[in-house]
Simulated assay, not measured.
Amino acid sequence: MWSGVLPAVTTKFTADDTLDHKEMERCFGLYMEAGCDGLIVCGSLGEGPMLSHDEKLEVLATARAAAGGRPVLLTVNEAATRDAQALAKRAAKAGADGLMIVPSPIYHTNDRETVDTLNAVASAGGLPVMIYSNRVAYRVDVTVPVMEALAANDLFVAIKESSDDIRRTTEVINAFGDRFDVLTGVDNLAFEALAVGAVGWVAGLVTAFPRETVAIYQLMKAGRRDEALAIYRWFRPLLDLDVSTYLVQNIKLAETIEIGSNERVRMPRQPLAGARRAEVERIVREAINERPALPRLDRAA
């Protein structure tokens, strides 16, 4: 159902900490122009846990208006299952094309609790679901046995595989074939995941460098592996910025430098400062100065 490059977009704020819909519309439009295949809003990078349900639905509406008919998924990352169910219902009424569900971001569920929670939230929304498996950030691992228990529910159609173990992609495909769309959710494992069968990339640095991200995916899809690898090797220092406690600040600073956006975040986060800021600026500016020429791409490939 879902494949290609789906940016996990950042949420933009005004100077007085309200949603900046105009800037989000501009940025989302850049991703669509670059050839991205949809949008995922209000996730980890989108500061979803810092947003109210009303704000999440407002971001969803802005993304839908910018997406040009391409799918827009709302991330559900609530601490309490009943709150997640309420948001899933509202997202369905608001026209979301699907949900990306974090099993349990605060309490670390066991396998039975994980299965029951995911089923409860999916059923409440009635929308296709991408499971967000991220044992590093959220300490809940959606393993192959857990996916076996979920496979009977047709609402589960995809998994954002962020276990940080490249072997997991092959394990899921070996176990289920094409039952689930497997999308990589770790920027600096994207080439490796696409090489072993992932059909998509839920990307972070794409929000600052959309053309390069799309180029890697399209080249891999076309079998032009060496060309994709050359871009990926250039991209790696930037992609590493996604795998950090400070991924939101890192990527918003990259957006500020590369696409003229801003780095406003919602407290308790604060923009980078001092040596950490200087290092991220160095990485981004060096990459821009060494940016490779992109080969011609055929979107129909």
Rank of each mutant, 00 (worst) to 15 (best):
P145R: 04
L74N: 03
N77I: 13
G68W: 01
V129I: 02
K93C: 09
L60I: 01
A122R: 00
D164F: 14
L39H: 00
L150Q: 14
V115T: 07
A79N: 15
V142F: 08
Y132F: 04
A66V: 11
R167H: 12
R82C: 14
V102R: 01
A149E: 11
C42V: 05
S163Q: 08
P49A: 08
A149M: 13
C36P: 03
G43W: 11
D111I: 09
N134S: 03
A66F: 01
L74V: 08
A158Q: 02
P71F: 04
V102S: 10
N77E: 09
L150F: 04
T170V: 09
T169C: 14
A84K: 04
A66W: 06
V41D: 08
L73F: 07
A151F: 06
K160C: 05
R90S: 13
G46S: 09
T143K: 00
E55S: 11
L118A: 01
I106Q: 13
A61D: 11
L74K: 01
H53A: 15
F156S: 02
L99R: 09
A158N: 13
Y132L: 06
G48L: 07
N119Q: 01
L74E: 02
V142R: 00
S162M: 03
S104P: 00
K89N: 10
E55T: 04
L45Y: 07
V144M: 07
N153Y: 00
M50G: 13
A63I: 02
A152L: 14
R82H: 14
K89I: 15
S44Y: 08
V59L: 11
D54F: 01
V102I: 11
L74Q: 08
D97N: 06
S162Q: 07
L118T: 01
I106C: 14
L127P: 03
D37K: 08
C42M: 13
R64F: 01
A96Y: 05
V76W: 05
N110C: 10
M130C: 05
P71H: 08
V146F: 12
A79W: 09
A149G: 12
K160T: 01
T109Y: 15
E148C: 10
S163V: 12
L57Y: 02
T169N: 05
P103H: 04
N110H: 15
L57S: 11
L51N: 08
L99Q: 11
H53C: 12
